[in-house]
């Protein structure tokens, strides 16, 4: 039974601090082998989870959502009204996206997503969060100095563009809908999706271009 007692857990953490091997890989190995010995996990299952998040479940899902919204006004309208149902149409509803909001960049608004208290992220549509998203540097500065953060990412904003920072403090997750790049009339959904960067869906990239693949 879980104690829900922070003092008990602080004591456990102190013991672990003194006794766990320093190397992270050894800590995880010890945990995995014990859980396997106890029949609580299975190593082949672990392999399958790693593979899922290495291949299929990643930002290419979010990119397809964005591209579809650019091409299909009906889908965009559903996405803005009820993002959960809209991503479910594509089979992307899943971990951490049961309460999802899409926030749209415009000529006068730029959106930026952060989790200052931990590292909340819409996993089932963006995959594993980048390391920088989970660092103290990003988490501390995104809410206080968003323009400075954006500048580091190469995003230079005019003063009259409003920055909206979304701090994911509850179970709602946010996806930025970037602006469609210019000169992409006639592009297919798949071709457009290739132009959508992961960072543009977090808000640390603003101007996508037909040459911004990657």
């Amino acid at each position: 039974m879980t104690s829900f007692d922070p003092d008990a857990v602080s004591k456990i953490h102190r013991h672990l601090h003194s006794h766990l091997p320093s190397e992270s890989a050894l800590r995880v190995k010890a945990l995995e082998s014990l859980l396997v010995e106890k029949g609580l996990v299975d190593s082949a299952t672990i392999d399958a989870w790693v593979e899922a998040y290495s291949e299929e479940v990643g930002p290419k899902r979010g990119a397809l959502v964005v591209a579809k919204a650019w091409i299909d006004p009906g889908f965009k309208s559903r996405l803005m009204q009820d993002a959960v149902s809209a991503i479910d149409e594509l089979g992307y509803l899943g971990k951490a996206t049961a309460h999802l909001k899409v926030v749209e960049n415009t000529a006068t608004i730029h959106n930026l997503v952060v989790c200052t208290l931990c590292s909340c992220y819409p996993f089932s549509i963006l995959g594993i969060a980048p390391n920088w998203y989970k660092t103290a540097a990003y988490r501390s500065r995104a809410v206080r100095d968003p323009r400075g953060v954006l500048e580091e990412f190469g995003v230079d904003l005019d003063d009259d563009i409003e920055v909206r920072v979304w701090d994911s403090t509850a179970e709602l997750r946010y996806l930025v809908l970037p602006q469609r790049p210019e000169a992409t009339q006639g592009f297919s959904e798949a071709a457009l999706a290739k132009l959508v960067t992961r960072n543009s869906m977090i808000g640390t990239h603003r101007t996508l271009s037909p040459g911004s693949e990657g």
Partner: peptide, 11 residues
Amino acid sequence: LGGKQGFGPID
């Protein structure tokens, strides 16, 4: 961490 100062550039 929100708003704490002194953390450096982002990678």
